[in-house]
Design a protein around this nucleic acid. Structure first.
Lengths: 203, 203
DNA sequence: GGAGAACTTGACCGAACGGTCAAGAAGCAG
DNA sequence: CTGCTTCTTGACCGTTCGGTCAAGTTCTCC
């Protein structure tokens, strides 16, 4: 579906994307019908199919946009920083901030993983994220700042720990993202063991 | 729906639960219809509604059983062990083993989080898991083996890191669970920083 | 063997879904 | 105003879904 859109058209498309995202996140993909989406905007059903091929394409579009936006945010956050540990730190911090601003997107990802047809789109995004982290981790290993373990494990550990803390503390408990980021970074860098190895945890 | 079931009845119920679990995991909850489930067992539709109130109750039942089974496995694994770090370790190890044997449940959990009506059931299970971990963490803090950070953060960090490694390495890459457990434990205990603090990582 | 409980059948139902489309309104360029 | 594209309407369609139920079969126990 590639249509020439006027500025009014682009605006409509945005409205549809935003409202659908909100409803999908609040109530789930399947329980949210196309009829509900267009009713929510007070327009006819044809509007929806003017801008999108169907419900599925709309959903994929939402995923794609979110992945793109998060990655841009992360890259902006670490640009100009060389220290690999620092880059991981800033990546976590910016992810927490972004996730706090885009709570809706989390549930969409969760759901997407449960239906085969959405998995490929999702995997694409995660692969990019992991590749990004791995680059920093490998730099860190090379310069001796990070333990010499398979970077893939490390990258996914960071991803998993971060994701869970985002869900539980930011989305479910409304803890400020900066605060959660501090804890996440401390745990990522030094684990749960007692005995500080003085990670440079600037605040 | 509380029916007196003969042994034949119990067997049927099991078949329905198992087959539905498999299909939900493979293809998603919504795309799997009740009709498909009963066809898969070669029985009439009435059979389904003899044993369950509906599709939703069936799904909740599957979740409940899985949570119960995992917890029993964990408790069996740590019984008789006193050292808190050791208990966390064994908890992770048994979780990895169980997850490897029950790959289907992972996707079900993912999905359940995306629809409001399933969240309460899920939360109940997670709360129990967190409470279990917290008990060990508090013991660990008390005896100085674990850093003095909010146990809630630590518990969720462990949960999140473990969950992610399970998904990526056990479910997606078929790495042996024992191997993944080793990495998880090392990362949980000591973080990603270089410089071993000689966690007693027995193999 | 008889009675009642446990189980099974499958046609059927109303509702809801994603999606289509002929028709028309609104905006804009010439 | 004319003609073209963009945008909007909402009735309508075929399909599928979760769920019901009257009827029939099988099991159990006395």
């Amino acid at each position: 579906m590639n249509r020439r859109l006027t500025s009014r058209g682009k605006e409509r498309r945005r409205q549809l994307l935003d409202f659908a995202t909100q409803r999908f996140a609040e109530n789930g993909y399947h329980p949210t019908s196309v009829a509900e989406i267009v009713q929510g905007l007070g327009v006819g059903k044809g509007v929806f199919y003017w801008y999108f091929d169907g419900k599925e394409q709309l959903f994929l579009e939402i995923l794609r946009e979110a992945q793109q936006d998060l990655r841009r945010t992360q890259q902006k956050a670490i640009e100009g920083v060389d220290d690999p540990i620092r880059r991981v730190e800033l990546g976590i911090r910016s992810t927490m901030a972004w996730s706090s601003d885009h709570a809706e997107y989390y549930k969409l990802t969760q759901f997407a993983m449960t239906e085969e047809r959405f998995v490929p789109a999702l995997r694409k995004g995660q692969d990019v994220a992991v590749k990004d982290i791995i680059r920093h981790v490998e730099d860190g290993i090379r310069c001796g700042a990070i333990r010499d373990t398979d970077p893939l494990y490390i990258a996914h550990s960071i991803l998993g720990l971060t994701t869970q803390l985002v869900r539980v503390f930011i989305h479910e408990r409304n803890v400020p993202p900066a605060e959660v980021a501090e804890e996440a970074i401390a745990l990522v860098l030094d684990g749960i063991h007692a005995g500080d190895r003085s990670s440079v945890t600037s605040s």
